[in-house]
């Protein structure tokens, strides 16, 4: 047989059923990424043992590593399948769903917890309304921009949550991605006005103090977001907030 790419894929038919493994082989092409390989498997899902099976289910959309959909464990590491070239991987290439989120089917998981957390910490800037207020937004220095922009690139993909020992279905921790958004919103010139609300949201159970400082998150972020820096900054902010709550006016 000509050169092939060998996959080992952890499968699960639905959230309630037991997982199982299957292996697939497709003809080698150097330009294959993991999604394009999955697409090829999908068209004719026959295992290495020659058994015709249901196509593997996974999630993808932009194919440019900007939407966050296709995050999965690839050889044990959480990353986007679309931007992972097979040529960079050792074989068999092992694909698994993220383990910190409920499996929907095969490689698809339900990341709703991340979006719920964004609600919980009020990750938005309060504006009076989306209408024209006939005045410009606040000025922001290029240095501030540079520091903030990196946080705005978070695509809620879940890599950092997967790597975090404190995050999981049975833990209340909101996780590093959510905290980084608090850092971003709190740094905005008008976002600051409601800084106390966001800080209070992360000062209780499941908040900042649940971080165990393992620093795994920053290692796996595909956008190199300085998550631990954000967590450090929030540590200072919450401490000051705590003192303000004790001694001074709430805001």
């Amino acid at each position: 047989m000509d050169k092939t790419i060998h996959f080992r894929i952890r499968r699960q038919d639905n959230p309630r059923s037991a997982p199982y493994w299957q292996e697939f082989q497709i003809p080698y092409r150097p330009e294959h990424n993991v999604v394009s390989a999955l697409m090829e498997i999908r068209e004719n899902p026959v295992t290495t043992q020659g058994e015709k099976v249901e196509p593997v289910a996974w999630e993808s959309n932009c194919m440019e590593e900007v939407c966050g959909s296709c995050t999965m464990l690839i050889n044990g590491k959480p990353r986007q399948a679309c931007s992972t070239l097979v040529d960079t991987l050792t074989e068999p290439i092992v694909l698994e769903p993220l383990t910190k989120f409920p499996v929907v089917r095969d490689l698809m998981v339900d990341r709703q917890a991340m979006f719920e957390s964004l609600k919980k910490v009020k990750a938005w800037i309060d504006i009076d309304g989306s209408w024209n207020v006939h005045t410009g937004g606040p000025r922001i220095s290029p240095q501030e921009w540079e520091e903030n922009y990196i946080y705005s690139r978070c695509m809620t993909c879940g890599c950092c949550m997967e790597a975090c020992p404190q995050f999981g279905p049975s833990y209340p921790f909101v996780g590093p991605a959510t905290l980084a958004q608090v850092r971003l919103m709190n740094a905005h010139p008008t976002g600051k006005y409601f800084r106390a609300d966001r800080l209070h949201a992360i000062m209780g159970e499941g908040g900042l103090s649940d971080c165990g400082n393992a620093q795994n998150c920053v290692e796996v972020c595909p956008k190199d977001i300085p998550l631990t820096t954000a967590i450090g900054e929030l540590g200072r902010q919450t401490t000051i907030q705590m003192l303000k709550d004790l001694f001074g006016p709430g805001r």
């Binding site: 938005w124 800037i125 989306s130 207020v133 006939h134 606040p138």
Partner: peptide
Amino acid sequence: GLIRTFERMGVTFSR
């Protein structure tokens, strides 16, 4: 006006 609204929403426009 629309851009200014985006700016108020906190969109990280380059400066």
